[in-house]
Structures are given as structure tokens and as C-alpha cells.
Amino acid sequence: MRSAYLVVISLLIGILIGAGGVSVLSAPIPDREVIYQVSTINALMESVYDGVVPVHELTRSGDHGIGTFDSLDGELILVDGVVYQAQGDGSVRVAPGDLRVPLAVVTFFDPDITLPNLYTSGYRNFEDVLLDSIRSENLMYAVRIDGVFSSVTVRAPHRQERPYPRLVDALSDQYMATHTTISGTAVGFLLPQYMAGLNVPGYHLHFISDDRTIGGHIVDFSLEGATVYLDETLVFMKQLPAEGGFIEVDLSADLSDELTIVERPVEE
């Protein structure tokens, strides 16, 4: 009993010290089994591009993820805890910590499934190959691919100026390039169809080369002996913007057709 009382007292002291602002813990221990999202995909589709969360705060919620930046200034690739910015001129840089994001999805990546030495041809074939490896299409998965891409087509939008155009229009002159026989990493998510409007249903992947000079949103890709990792995650947390364009935008429209054009514009 005495030891039990000591444990309770220790916990109470810890709570009181934390309330007084002098806790030895500078931040709460993050929950690694949560997918954390800023804003919604439909808000981005409707030109809500103002950043709401800085990069340095985003990485407190994950070491793996995707998104975009304030004013739609390129594609966000979070890999191994580092945020990269694939810009509209085709260049890639480490994103400044104070750069804000209007949309991002991140998690701490702890793979549950490993599929080594995969050869696939095109996005559709990749989807078919992985279908038998997941427990359910109703669950959420973080996805990572490491290895050789026999081809990968990437895109990145140019920074937009006010008044912001809608996303389908903003991407009309985006940077797009296809690279062959390139080693790199793809990160992203496989999300259920019922999450339409909140996020992109199905696969949504961003790529960065091993030398960190090529990157962007993946439009299409094929693999040449790559390893695919899947992290099944059951908890989803969303942070909505508290001000700005998100407050007044009409998010009632069905944008699924436009989303298909935005995500994979070269698909037949």
C-alpha cells in the first residue's frame, strides 16, 4: 500500500509542477499512432491557401507526411523528420521552420507491413499489387516506398497571388517532369473512400530523390525492385483553421471530379 501511495503522490506532484509551468517535461510525449491533419482537401480545392501551422510545429506531430505551403508554394515532403519543399521551378530545399502550411497530413511512421523487392508498372498496377496486403480498405495506412523508380512523374505548383484561383485552375501551369531509373523515397497515405472531402481517398504520395534534388506530388510511377512499408493507423485527428478563408468558404460542393484531375492529370 505504501508504495502505491508514493506512486499516486508522485503523479500528483508531477501534475502540479506541470501546471506551474516548471515541469521537467518540455512537451507531452507524442502519440505515435495518430494521423494528424491540418485543414481539409476541399478547402484547398476552393483556394484556401493561407498557412495556419508553421513547419516547426507540424513536425511535433509526425516524422512522415505530405502537404503544401502558404500561397500554394510547392509540395511538402516530410521524410525522416525533415520537411522538404519541392518548388514550382523544379528545385527542392529544406523548408524554413517558420513557413506555414494550409494543408498537411503527418504521422510518426512505424511500419506494420513490409513488402520487399516490388516491381510494378503504373499507379493502377501498384494499387492492385498492394490490395491483398492490407487488412481492410476501411482502415488508414501511412505509406513509404524506398528504392529504384523505373519512372516517376512529379508535379509542383507555383506560388499563387491574391485573389487566389481555385486549385484546378492554379495547377494549369504547374511544373511537371518525368524521371527514369531514379532512386528515392515516396511518402504518403492510403485513406478510405469515406474520407472524401476531408482528404484524398485512395493513395496520395509525394516523392523525393535520394540526393534531395528532385521531388513533388506523384502523378504516376513504376517501381524497379523497391521496398514498400505500410503503417496501419486507427486514430485520426484534425486541426481546422480558426480564421481566414476557411471560415467563410462554401465546402458543400461535390469536388470529386475536380480532385481526380488535380491528383492524376495524366491518367486515362
Rank of each mutant, 00 (worst) to 15 (best):
Y49I: 03
A86T: 06
D257T: 12
A86G: 08
D112N: 09
T227F: 05
V48K: 05
V7M: 05
V79F: 08
L191G: 02
A156C: 01
S10W: 01
L234P: 02
Y194E: 10
E224H: 07
H64V: 04
G122Q: 08
G20R: 05
L171C: 01
I113F: 01
S172E: 15
V228Y: 06
E258S: 09
G225Q: 05
A104D: 12
F236H: 10
T233R: 12
G216L: 01
V266N: 11
S3A: 11
H217C: 01
M140C: 07
T180H: 15
E263I: 14
S256D: 05
Q239H: 13
Q239V: 13
R155D: 11
G14H: 00
I13Q: 01
N42D: 14
E57K: 13
S10I: 00
L191E: 12
M195K: 14
Y141Q: 04
A86D: 11
V8K: 09
P102Y: 09
V92D: 13
L12W: 00
R32E: 15
V105F: 02
I17C: 06
P265F: 13
L25N: 09
Y229A: 00
G225M: 05
H204V: 09
S121V: 07
G122D: 03
T185G: 00
T233M: 08
L190T: 01
V94Y: 06
V24R: 12
V154K: 04
E127Q: 13
S183R: 11
D231F: 08
L130T: 12
G184L: 06
S172Q: 12
G188C: 03
Q37N: 02
V129R: 15
L115D: 04
P28R: 10
V219H: 13
T178G: 07
G74W: 07
S136V: 04
E46T: 08
V168S: 14
A177G: 00
